[in-house]
Design a binder for these strands. Structure first.
Length: 385
DNA sequence: AACCCGGGGTG
DNA sequence: CACCCAGGGTT
């Protein structure tokens, strides 16, 4: 489509103004192309949308805004509450970085999300993509973006057969994204590219027959759209095995806070012990909790898959007669009180198992207990819980 | 440049 | 089940 950039932009924008989804972080439909959305909404939505799809984000976005309607309110918030509102969305460093970014915006930018890509890039958690997305969508700056959607669209338009994740190809795609960016309505053009990738030029079954820019597409001409972009290499998932001890005393459960770095940083969990470090049995492992536990009862196994890991939690319930003196990083909380603590997804499921224990549906436990998948995983020597 | 970081949706 | 997704930070 060399040489026809202007016509391409015109076609894409025309399609976008008619077909775009009405999302809560966008300006009202009636005002499209004239009114800019709230920069804070754009920033929040773009961070939530990193590696996460639109339908998943929408309820989180609304709930987050109810608690933190402005950058100032977010900056003043407690990190635990921010994490709590992010609970279930994953990639929790996004939440911690966004919280830090809000503080920087208040301190250095008077509470206003900065306009320039350079300033945005200086914020924690804001990379090249998000900086361009905020600058273009919130302020109509002429800044290019390349995300997974744009990458796929551009690769198909130019019939790029090589792996777009390679450095040289990625560099070329960013240059291409800049080159096709029109002088006006850069934000809507960028949104249009992503919207096209999300709704028409999809990964598995692209709707080429209804595509507004089909005549510019080299992949469609060759019928190669399903081979582009080249799929990424598969990764082997490692199996991580854990014992989990849900220890109760007088209606309260013992939980612990995770370390400040790494997976699920500073979130909370039931007492978790790495399996395969000397303890042959759960009873021996229970000693590692530092609490005298009696009446150990096996509840079941929970499987939890991540991109590069497969977790297996073997869950036990037990009681202690003496509540030990409080120690830093631990807390005794009721089942209801757990809602004040940010928990990783698997521990939310464990909490649900415990909550059910007090009801008639206790017999349904096996229904909410999953078994690890049958396939084999690489065994890894566990280090930290 | 390689590695790490969660979870949900879809076919 | 396999694959996909509005990426960024760390080392």
């Amino acid at each position: 489509m060399i040489g026809s950039e202007r016509q391409f932009a015109k076609s894409l924008l025309k399609w976008y103004y008619g077909a775009r989804r009405d999302l809560p972080w966008r300006a009202p439909l009636a005002a499209a192309s004239t009114v800019r959305p709230d920069p804070y909404y754009v920033l929040l939505s773009e961070v939530m949308l990193q590696q996460t799809q639109v339908p998943t984000v929408i309820p989180y976005f609304r709930r987050f805004l109810e608690h933190f309607p402005t950058v100032q309110r977010l900056a003043d918030a407690d990190e635990q509450q921010v994490l709590r509102l992010w609970q279930g969305l994953g990639y929790y460093s996004r939440a911690r970085n966004l919280h830090k970014a809000a503080k920087v915006i208040v301190q250095r930018h008077g509470g206003v999300v900065p306009r320039q890509v350079e300033q945005l890039l200086a914020l924690p958690g804001i990379g090249r993509y998000t900086a361009g997305a905020v600058a273009s969508q919130a302020y109509d700056q002429r800044a290019p973006i390349v995300d997974c959607n744009v990458q796929r669209v551009l690769c198909r338009l130019d019939a790029v057969m090589v792996d777009p994740r390679e450095r040289e190809t990625s560099k070329r795609l960013w240059q291409r994204a800049e080159a096709i960016l029109p002088q006006k309505h850069a934000g809507d053009f960028n949104s249009g590219l992503m919207e096209l990738g999300a709704t028409v030029c999809t990964a598995r079954s692209p709707l080429c027959l209804t595509c507004p820019v089909r005549k510019y597409c080299e992949a469609a001409k060759k019928g190669a759209q399903l081979q582009i972009p080249r799929p990424k290499a598969k990764v082997e998932r490692l199996l991580e095995r854990r014992w989990v001890f849900c220890i109760e005393h007088d209606g309260r459960w013992l939980i612990e806070q995770r370390p400040a770095a790494g997976r699920w940083a500073r979130m909370w969990q039931f007492i978790t012990v790495v399996r395969g470090q000397g303890q042959a049995t759960a009873k021996e492992a229970a000693k590692a909790t530092g609490v005298v536990v009696d009446s150990l009862q096996r509840l079941g196994t929970i499987a939890h898959g991540l991109t590069h890991r497969q977790y297996e939690f073997v869950v036990f319930r037990g009681a202690t007669r003496m509540r030990p003196a409080p120690r830093p990083g631990r807390a005794w909380v009721s089942v209801d009180g757990l809602s004040n603590y940010p928990l990783p997804r698997p521990h939310v499921r464990i909490a649900a198992m415990l909550a059910m224990a007090g009801t008639e549906s206790a017999r349904q436990w096996p229904a909410c207990v999953t078994r690890p998948e049958q396939r084999r995983y690489l065994q890894v020597p566990g280090r930290s819980a």
